[in-house]
């Protein structure tokens, strides 16, 4: 009995020693800095004196009260929502085919989808810049075919939506593929054996079973899109504003650290709130545990 207790104590000490360094790292490089960031967001700012220590919600109030910043937030939500919706539309068919394929090249296909995921947003955007830039592929094709000489997608919200959609699509496909794979194919066979068309079998059998996984994948893609940085900077151009690039602009160009901190917190809070809201909107029986 006594030995058992001592053994337990010893193993708790061992677990503490094993977990300690990593926990200290996260506390020191994530938790403490974020707490300080919040503190900064309550300071005042003056262009000549820079930061003036204070405890005020001024930055947040002026954010919500300013047409300029509110528009950036709304634009960010809009771009994230549209690109995420399109991500589901284009991602589901690819994921479904991938999940149901019996090809021996399936693992190569998964690999091909993982490659863009790990390439980083900057590198992935190069291809879209080639396609969309003035004199790029799309521009040139349209000029040859339709004679339009002034059709530039570069530096438009559409370009940013396409870029984010393309960036998040492999995530969506891989997550949904795992979801579809867990759904037994014999259920679909049973549905079609009973006379259901493929669409009906999908809508009535596969869809409801996939919904919990689909909702998680959708929310994750939305979060990624809300925080996009490189894509809006490169495809949206200098006059297109989204939240994550704005954090950097306030910090680096305007030197307004308190406002940069507030923008970061507004971004995080909005993202979390919308994710929670989206999860609430899903009927209980379809919600992931």
């Amino acid at each position: 009995m006594a030995r058992g207790a001592r053994g337990e104590q010893g193993s708790a000490r061992l677990a503490g020693a094993l977990l300690g360094p990593a926990t200290v790292l996260v506390l020191l490089v994530l938790v403490a800095p974020l707490a300080l960031l919040f503190r900064y967001s309550l300071d005042k700012f003056d262009p000549s004196q820079l930061i003036i220590p204070a405890v005020t919600a001024e930055n947040y109030i002026s954010f919500v009260g300013s047409r300029f910043y509110l528009d950036i937030l709304l634009r960010t939500i809009e771009v994230a929502a549209v690109s995420t919706a399109l991500c589901v539309v284009f991602g589901a068919p690819v994921a479904y085919r991938l999940a149901r394929t019996t090809s021996r090249y399936k693992s190569a296909m998964v690999l091909a989808l993982m490659l863009p995921l790990f390439m980083g947003a900057t590198a992935r955007t190069v291809g879209w810049m080639i396609l969309l830039s003035h004199g790029g592929v799309v521009n040139l094709t349209l000029r040859t075919l339709a004679g339009h000489s002034r059709f530039d997608l570069m530096y438009t919200p559409t370009a940013v939506i396409i870029g984010i959609l393309s960036f998040n699509l492999p995530y969506m496909v891989l997550m949904l593929q795992a979801v579809f794979e867990r759904i037994d194919i014999s259920l679909e066979e049973a549905a079609s054996g009973l006379g259901a068309t493929p669409l009906r079998a999908f809508a009535r059998v596969v869809g409801p079973l996939a919904l919990p996984g689909l909702s998680i994948a959708t929310i994750l893609c939305f979060i990624l899109a809300m925080n996009a940085y490189a894509t809006p900077v490169l495809l949206g151009g200098p006059r297109f504003h989204m939240m994550a690039p704005q954090v950097y602009v306030e910090f680096a160009s305007n030197n307004n650290w308190p406002l940069a901190a507030s923008v970061a917190f507004v971004l995080m809070a909005t993202t979390i709130a919308l994710a929670v809201l989206a999860n609430r909107l899903i009927p209980d029986r379809y919600r992931a545990p």
Binding site: L34, L36, L37, Y40, Y229, A244, A261, F265, M268
Partner: peptide, 14 residues
Amino acid sequence: TVPLIAVGLAVYLF
């Protein structure tokens, strides 16, 4: 899961 843009700013200010 925490947006890295916020982490970067926070770490620098820290």
